[in-house]
Write a protein that binds this DNA or RNA. Structure first.
Lengths: 355, 355
DNA sequence: CAAGTTTAGACAAACGTTTGTCCATTGTCC
DNA sequence: GGACAATGGACAAACGTTTGTCTAAACTTG
């Protein structure tokens, strides 16, 4: 076969119904009926074949644009999320994207860094681009948001009527985490409170306090680290832990806000000469991919992030198909025990005699 | 103010030019001229104000769909990449997305898992959705690809005329890596060859062989690990390294294909009782976010992934503006020295006496 | 004040579809 | 062989824009 001379972008217009019609001596409407297998029209098999052959020959792709203008669906979703890059959002997005593509949907990814103006402006902008529905991950939509389209939330902050929200069962997560540490004999536990803009922070903190009370564990202010930085790198927890160590507070375990902050925690402990888990146990949250390959590997509360993403996407597609969807879907976490937690060291204050 | 009763998706149609026109007693074209500040039409300030006020009042958003059909640009890019989730692609995507959104562009993310049919089908599908240009990350486009739109590649495999390719200077990367290990006295180095479908694998391997020869280092088959699994978790390198250890081959350093595989490597060494870097040095590649928080933190060759992404996006926007763009942009790597590499242990074979 | 010019805007075509309505031709039935 | 139905397909409107052409009124100028 002859070699393509070049691959520069094509200059000729792509095939349209009208072109095919002209070429075949038919009308555009007939072509449309054949290609869409529209019911209620009688078209002989011979013509159908001719049309299909021509469509294939000219590599015809119907313009979704024109089709959408006509009132049809674009088969496209807009995904709102705070940030690109690694971590929580990427995992959820990955579940969303997998499902959507599998179902023949395309999607826009739109990040807003928690900026209010952007969060409220994007839904309309997406609609103007023909999006059929909106899926928002960890995004703070205002209570009175007037959403232009069917919407589903993952870890949504607010309850909006008619909007499905997929969230983790935080109560159970807190219970798994604290019961594990409690059973290992930990009583002096350092806690970490998520950033205020992160949707899970409040619910999780409330659940933690609740479960701690039930188990008779004290949550002391001195042992609580407040994450603030809007970052997805382990550096978010690093300064907090360093500060804690320098303040000479005694603790035998750290309950981290997520796996990434657990890495920063382990790093900070390591640099201070404290060993994990011998001296201090560290419990992560999320179970991101690299957790099991850390040294020590991370004990963590697994949050089925991809699953949450794909569930949310499924719900959105259901909504588009006008099927009934629940307003709340709660998914269960799971305790994954690895190396970073161990029995609390018996003597409260002996550290550097082990070697 | 009265509370919004509900936030269920709206049922009324969004405002259109025609609606505004009717409301104001003007024609749609006049509204269009005012809103687009089209030159060459005389429209009195009073009318302009009326129109703008009405547009604001009805929260008018022009339909990109209709506009695109008319022949205008959609301000939308299609991004092709092998996989969602963490790692290389996410980092590049993050750079791409940041720049595009900043410039007022939206983008589709489309993943293909290196499947040929998908790679060749997606460009047309994206075009049919009104995309203005295509940005492909680590994607194997066939040499004779007939691209429907302006295209830019990051780590593209093939040279396509008229297509800009943003790639790492692999020669320099190999030199930084091997010279570092060589200077630390390493002579028995284990190598890792990337998966065949990964675009960087071949070029990097060639560069590695070349530089190794220049430095007088031998690249032995027995000490070469071939990555195969299509995964972005540290598990890709884990079995290879285990196998290497079991084979009792002697080596003092491992040059990993990326940071993720370096984590798997360290984990495997750790489980075999080998200490990093005391017994074996490990060198990563990429410098992903978590590298500096590993224990030990990773010495690595930094690849400016986000920058590569944003550069590629910039080039694509230039192409869309009909500006001149180079066919090749080479970006320089950087050696980041941390804890995972150290001077080669002098005695070739003494390991377990340290404790 | 007639002729010409500017102003303010309407009108219509086009983009590529979908879909409701309509019209020939052919075939069927009594 | 005439009435009627089925077949095969054309025609046109509509979706929401943009943009080239046209026109009525108002203003200028000599």
């Amino acid at each position: 076969m002859p070699k393509q001379p070049t691959s520069s972008p094509r200059t000729t217009r792509p095939a349209s119904l009208k072109m095919l019609a002209e070429h075949l001596g038919l009308s555009p409407s007939t072509i449309s009926f054949v290609l869409n297998d529209a019911p209620g029209r009688s078209i002989p098999e011979s013509t159908r074949q001719r049309v299909k052959a021509a469509a294939a020959k000219f590599n015809y792709q119907p313009s979704m644009i024109a089709r959408t203008l006509q009132g049809k669906r674009m088969q496209t979703i807009g995904v709102l999320l705070p940030e690109l890059g690694e971590g929580y959002h990427s995992q959820v997005l990955s579940g969303v994207g997998d499902l959507l593509m599998r179902e023949g949907f395309f999607y826009f990814t739109v990040h807003h860094r928690h900026k209010k103006e952007l969060v409220s402006a994007y839904p309309e902008l997406l609609r103007s681009r023909g999006v059929d529905g909106i899926l928002a991950i960890d995004t703070h939509l205002p209570e009175d948001a007037l959403l232009p389209l069917p919407t589903v939330l993952v870890a949504g902050h607010t309850e909006l009527s008619g909007v499905t929200n997929v969230i983790l069962n935080h109560e159970k997560a807190a219970e798994l985490a604290l019961r594990h540490l409690h059973q290992l004999g930990h009583r002096k536990i350092a806690f970490m409170q998520g950033q205020p803009f992160s949707s899970d922070s409040d619910t999780r903190w409330a659940a933690t306090l609740h479960v701690a009370r039930e188990l008779g564990l004290t949550v002391s202010d001195q042992l609580t680290i407040h994450l603030e930085k809007d970052s997805h790198s382990p550096e978010i927890s690093y300064p907090g832990i360093r500060h804690l160590i320098q303040s000479r507070q005694h603790f035998t375990a750290v309950l981290c806000f997520n796996d990434v902050s657990a890495m920063g925690t382990i790093r900070a402990l390591h640099e201070a000469g404290l060993r994990v888990p011998t001296d201090v146990s560290v419990l992560g949250f999320d179970d991101i991919q690299s957790s099991q390959y850390q040294v020590p590997s991370l004990t963590t509360i697994r949050q089925p992030l991809q699953k949450m993403g794909s569930t949310a996407a499924q719900m959105l597609l259901k909504k588009l198909a006008d099927e009934e969807t629940p307003e709340l879907i709660r998914v269960d976490p799971e305790l994954i025990v690895r190396e970073s937690t161990a029995r609390a060291s018996k003597p409260p204050k002996k550290i550097s005699a082990a070697r």
